[in-house]
Computed example of a mutant assay.
Amino acid sequence: MTTTAPAHPAPFRSPSTSGSRIGSVVRLHFANPMTVVVIPAIVLGGIFLVNLAIWWIILRSVPAEAQADAREGLQWSGATFYLFVYMLIVAVQAMNATFAFAQGFGATRRDYYLGTSLVFVVLSLGWSVAFTVMGLLETATGGWGLGGRMFTAIYFTENPLSRLLIVFLAFLFFFFIGAAIATVFVRWRGTGLTLFLVGAAVVLVGIAALVTLGDGWPAVGAWFAAAGPTGVALWSLVITLLAAVAGFLNLRRATTRD
């Protein structure tokens, strides 16, 4: 038999403090490191090995006089983008898997969301540090001996500290976009999520159409060029914060389901 939790459950009566409940939520998310650490590391390692193979094939297939041009082309890489997108999926899976469990053990929605947000911040910091360390190794080895750039691609800047900030903010962006999507599913289930994704696609396509009809793409490109990678990353905080607030507001009215 399927049961539905009341819209306004009884308050948590445990003597534990809000801080301890937030800590319990953090431990709950890290109870299965396979999801938030191991699998993302495997994904990143797989992407890295594939890139090494591609770089080697490219350099072996071009004549000696074209090596310089080939290595110049290897400065651009979007390979790490897949890791950021995967973190969005991690956020969706983590919240969907733990929300009902945390509610069953008395965590309030506020404590759960704060604990989950803290997990996302910690993961973003940890992954950005790992990313930056790999970038330093990439620079020290001359692009892993092949002149390739995956962790130091041109849009991550040459400065390691700036790269750390950019990557940290990028991870936050994808984690909290994923959190907002997860709360839509938790509150409205599959139907609500489908409508949300369709609506988001319509809005994005509409914006692209308006920019195209208004010949605005040169202005968009000029803005990105003027802002630079660090500026764009800082501006992404606006969307990150909006997604975080939207996720919290959604979760406040969500009910657990078996």
Results as ranks from 00 to 15, higher is better:
Ala66Arg: 07
Ile154Leu: 14
Leu83Tyr: 01
Tyr86Thr: 05
Ala97Leu: 03
Val133Asp: 00
Gly45Ile: 12
Gly143Met: 07
Ala170Ser: 14
Phe131Asn: 04
Leu114Glu: 04
Ala41Met: 05
Thr116Lys: 03
Gly135Met: 12
Pro63Glu: 12
Ala179Lys: 10
Glu158Thr: 15
Leu74Trp: 05
Asp111Pro: 02
Thr132Gln: 06
Phe168Leu: 14
Trp127Arg: 00
Ala180Ser: 14
Phe174Asp: 07
Val121Gly: 02
Ile54Pro: 07
Gly145Gln: 08
Tyr155Val: 06
Leu114Pro: 01
Ser128His: 05
Pro40Phe: 13
Thr116Tyr: 06
Ile54His: 14
Tyr82Ala: 04
Tyr113Gly: 01
Ala66Gly: 09
Val43Leu: 03
Gly147Pro: 09
Ala100Phe: 11
Phe156Ala: 07
Pro160Gly: 04
Phe173Gly: 12
Leu146Glu: 01
Ser117Arg: 02
Ala140Tyr: 13
Leu44Thr: 05
Leu83Trp: 03
Gly135Thr: 00
Trp56Met: 04
Leu59Lys: 04
Phe99Trp: 07
Ala140His: 04
Val184Gln: 00
Val122Trp: 02
Glu138Ser: 14
Gly178Met: 15
Gly126Ala: 13
Val50Lys: 02
Gln103Tyr: 10
Met150Asn: 01
Ala79Gln: 07
Phe168Met: 03
Phe105Ser: 00
Leu123Trp: 00
Asn159Tyr: 09
Ala68Val: 13
Gly142Thr: 04
Val133Ala: 11
Ala102Gly: 05
Gln103Asn: 08
Ala179Trp: 08
Ala70Tyr: 06
